[in-house]
Design a binder for these strands. Structure first.
Lengths: 244, 244
DNA sequence: CAAATAGTGTCTTTCAGACAATATTGT
DNA sequence: ACAATATTGTCTGAAAGACACTATTTG
């Protein structure tokens, strides 16, 4: 008779990784961490998504763990954070059967100056499309990054996600620019404004400020905790399916 | 010097659960398993999602594990299977820090007769809305079920998912009925047909058969591995947002 | 031939996309 | 005033929703 049922079978190890996106220099970028070169660590010197083992003592749940990783690497406290999915199997980590829970985060470009908060040298931003073209990442992180980018681009077609990539307050032209950067194509000005304002997720940040000649109305998110879903996708005349 | 880096910290345990949906008796139902009553098992006698620990020896990866659980409980080999997300934390299982990877599956109503394939008495179908109204499930499975139902209902608005809930070949009126059952509201016949046929995911299963007075064209899925995404949601005139 | 359901057609409204016009500010 | 960009307006076409109509089969 045992006090607990037999729990002595081998357990996979559990990690959490975070795909942290931001728009810097007019490009969609991802934060990566370089793996230690010496020691017995797998993929020495390779770049990887920030993440690591769940700490049973520190982390109340998976999301808390993701927030901890994010805080440690960027100093950012309250980003947009969404679960992306999980990847697990015998082959993805040479140390054994592992499963990782992946989150993706959107943070504002301005906040990156804080990046050097905790660590520093081994952290860097990478332009997403360049990374995807020549994937040399640790573990199965290239696959995970691809899934994250696809999810992001898909959701940008019909949600307000890009608003989380800008520091507040932001103007509608700035927001439009972010949409165009992430989507990789121009967006009609008039339709864009109609859509954003109709969706009711913005509130005027009173004053205006200048990013160009004429100042524009500043806006702020009504709710920083969740994105808004539009009734239809952005879709240039020709494209048959929106692609969600 | 150790051959491997220190991996001796406490690991959470890893499980996989599957939310198996089907339409039976004109209702959306979900398959649950009753937890053993004796022994030291948590939640004795409660109903739970089928699932359990990842078997490092048997399961190549998470999806394989999910398919194994599904096969063991239903005998179904190739359902529609999609990852739903993961839930993990210190509090969800009395035995300790645990993380579960959840999949959701759609199987055709006719296949359920095979249900008694492997196990039997401790497995049963439950009408989804009744379950959600009075959740008495083990672990955090009520929360997980809710998430699964929300995901399903949301995707039914703009994908061909309901086709996986019918045995082939099926007719368009039958398919429409499934949409109506899952969505909980009537759908216009004309628009429905236009949409389904325009989406190109069906192929005529030659002959016809009868479910009512007049026989109808039978259809089969062109691709049983993935669902099709429609450009817009079903949306009755009034509703402002589709809700994805 | 009547009942019942499969399948088609038509009208209206909505709304995204395209593009043009106007407004506002710094220099 | 001019340049540059913010902001608004108009037109058009595509497609969804509503609803009526036709077709086909069984009993």
């Amino acid at each position: 008779m045992v006090s607990k049922p037999r729990m002595e079978f081998p357990r996979p190890f559990t990690t959490v990784d975070v795909v942290i996106f931001s728009v810097i220099d007019e490009q969609l970028q991802v934060l990566l961490v370089q793996r230690p070169k010496g020691g017995e660590e797998p993929f020495p010197g390779r770049w990887a998504l920030p993440g690591g083992f769940v700490n049973v003592a520190l982390d109340a749940d998976l999301e808390a763990c993701a927030r901890r990783k994010l805080r440690e690497k960027t100093g950012v406290e309250s980003p947009y954070l969404e679960q992306l999915g999980s990847w697990g199997g015998a082959a993805r980590d040479p140390r054994g059967w592992s499963a990782t829970h992946v989150y993706f985060a959107l943070i504002a470009g301005a906040q990156l100056t804080l990046t050097k908060g905790a660590n520093a040298a081994d952290v860097a931003w990478f332009e997403v499309d360049a990374l995807l073209a020549k994937p040399r990442m640790a573990f199965d992180h290239a696959e995970i990054l691809l899934a994250a980018v696809e999810r992001l681009r898909a959701k940008v077609e019909y949600t307000s996600l890009p608003a989380f990539l800008l520091p507040e307050p932001f103007t509608l032209p700035q927001l439009q620019r972010v949409y165009e950067i992430v989507l990789g194509r121009p967006v009609d000005k008039s339709g864009f404004r109609t859509r954003m304002l109709a969706a009711q997720f913005l509130e005027e940040a009173g004053a205006v400020e200048g990013d160009s000649r004429r100042p524009a109305m500043g806006y702020r998110l009504r709710d920083r905790d969740s994105a808004v879903v539009f009734p239809r996708t952005f879709s240039p005349r020709g494209s048959p399916l929106g692609g969600r």
